[in-house]
Each structure stands twice: as C-alpha cells, then as structure tokens.
C-alpha cells in the first residue's frame, strides 16, 4: 500500500513538474519575447537590449529554465505586470478567498447531494426516485453559467435578496468583525449556491448507487431481521459504508470544483485565484500565469493524493 502511495506521489511530482515546464517553454518558445511584448515597439534597439538583459533573455534557454525552476521552487515568483506587486502577494491575497468559496460550495454540494441520495435510496425505483434521478442528472448537465444566470436573475434582480458581485461593499471596511462576517456571508450566498447546485447532481448519483449496492449486503438483511427500522438501517448501517468511497470521489472531483469555481469567481467578481488567474491570462501577465498554474496544479494534485492517503487509511480492507 505504502509503495503504491509513494509511486503516486512520485508521479504527481512528475506531473506538476511537466505542467510547470510546459508553462515555461510555452512562454519561452512563443514568438516575440517579453521585452518586445511589454515595451513600446518604438524604443531604441539599445534600450531593448537593456530590457532583454534586465529580464535575462540574452542567456541560453536552458540556463533560463534552470534558474526559473529554482526560483519557482524556492518561492521567488517575480513581479506581476498587471498588479504591479510581487506575484507571491497577489496569490497569497487570493488563495484564502478561493478556499472560503470552495469550502462552503463543497459543503452545500455534499448536503444537497446526500439529501437527494437518501430520499432516492429509501424507496428505489419509485416515482420520487426516478424524478430525483432526472433532476440530479439535469444538475450535472447544467453549465455553471446557466445556474449563475438563473440565480442572479431570481435572487439579485427580481427579488434583490443577495448582492450580485464582489465579497464586500466598499463601506464594509468600517464594520465590526461580526458585521464584516455577515457581509461576507451575504456575498458568498449566490456563488456558493452555484457551486453546490452544479455539483450536487454528481454526488447524488454516486451516493445513490453505492447506497443501493450496500442495501444488497448481508449485514443490511441481518439488521432488518434483528428488527432495526428501515430508516435506522439506511442511516446508521448503510450510509457510513456508502460514504467511504466518497473520499476518493471527492478527491477526484477536486479538479472540477476548482475549474468550476474559476467561472463562478469570474461571474460573481469573487476576488479569488480564479478571477486573478483570468485577469492574468487576459492581460498576458506571464509571471502570474506561470505561478498561478503551478500553484493551483500543485494544490489540486496534492489534494487528490491526500484523498488517496485518507482513503487507504480509512478503509481497513485496503489498509495493510
């Protein structure tokens, strides 16, 4: 078991390294170097040469690659052209906001998905089961911007209950801690609900399937024979076993969660990684694009690996 996890860790490091190198060579080999992209095209050749030397572009590509890689690994990420601040500061400010959105979005996703699955699995193949199956498949099929558009139109425009964008109003700076918390919660409602609604279908489909598998098991029959109520068997006996594989599923859905929240952050102007990254890509802000890609990839790949570790620790059948 340990060797498999270590092998996966090594492969994860290789993949992160491949992605990082990919972003470097994509930039380095793209036509037109940084100096010509950033600077006024009318500057003198001497000034351009100085600029090239400032960025180290006169050195051979492999030397630049090695120094870029060591800089990135040691956390020296350079300055963002767009925000005119160190990349590290920009990313450090955005990361917690994405974490807040992802956490509450995931929370809603799980609550909604589990509720759907439990209702469905309590009476499989009934009318409600079929209806909810179709609904959860529909939720899975909806693109994030459709959900966002409907939520915005309903709850920010027709019934203006929640603000349509940003994390706080400008005047929220002066509020007390509790006031700021409430302000963030109000702004979080629509983006987090979008994450939850788009993700709950996949969770419901998965948990329903594994609950029905568990209901076939002998221990369920034994519990029923002992006189446990159906509800008790479903909630206390079958559900924990059905949730165990969810750890892996959550790990595997992490990339989708992060990718999905990119679109949601852009729509709701939520100042997280996704929005910063999108702004960087739109402005061709090379250092920020490179660092953002490496950071998000590392985070997601690491999360995935951790889910694998957690699963092998939680499931005694795999633990050895």
């Amino acid at each position: 078991m340990t060797t498999r996890l270590l092998r996966r860790l090594a492969a994860s490091l290789i993949v992160v390294w491949l992605v990082a190198s990919g972003t470097f060579f994509l930039v380095a080999l793209a036509p037109g170097d940084l100096a010509s992209k950033m600077a006024d095209p009318r500057i003198s050749p001497a000034a351009r040469q100085r600029l090239r030397e400032h960025f180290g572009l006169h050195r051979p590509i492999w030397k630049r690659y090695v120094s870029w890689l060591t800089d990135t690994v040691s956390g020296n990420l350079g300055d963002s052209f767009l925000f005119r601040r160190p990349v590290r500061e920009v990313l450090a400010a955005a990361l917690p906001n994405t974490a807040i959105l992802a956490f509450w979005g995931l929370f809603l996703e799980l609550v909604l998905g589990l509720a759907l699955a439990l209702v469905q699995a309590s009476k499989p193949h009934s009318f409600w089961d079929r209806l909810l199956s179709a609904l959860s498949l529909g939720a899975y099929a909806m693109p994030t911007f459709l959900v966002a558009a409907v939520l915005l139109w309903l709850f920010a425009y027709t019934f203006p209950l929640f603000p349509p964008s940003h994390m706080a109003e400008p005047q929220a700076q002066g509020l007390s801690f509790g006031g700021r918390l409430a302000e963030t919660a109000r702004h979080l409602a629509l983006p987090a609900l979008t994450v939850g609604l788009t993700g709950c279908g996949a969770v419901a489909r998965y948990v329903r399937g594994s609950l029905l598998d568990e209901k076939q098991q002998a221990y369920v029959l034994a519990a029923l024979a002992r006189g446990c109520s159906k509800r008790r068997v479903l909630l206390i006996h079958a559900l924990p076993n059905a949730l165990l594989p969810m750890i892996t599923v959550l790990g595997l859905s992490l990339p989708f969660l992060v990718s999905g929240s990119l679109v949601i952050e852009v729509i709701f102007s939520w100042p997280g990684m996704g929005q910063v990254f999108y702004a960087a890509v739109t402005a061709r802000d090379v250092p920020l694009i490179q660092a953002g890609t490496v950071l998000v990839t590392t985070a997601v790949v690491a999360g995935n690996w951790l889910a694998d570790v957690a699963y092998s620790w939680a499931d005694p059948r795999i633990r050895r």
Binding site: V263, Y278, T297, G303
Partner: peptide
Amino acid sequence: LALPLLFVLLAV
C-alpha cells in the same frame, strides 16, 4: 487526472 483542466487550458 487530477489536473485542474480549466486553469491549464487557459494558461495554454
């Protein structure tokens, strides 16, 4: 499989 595809695709 764990790559955050949208980020990688945008970067490319």
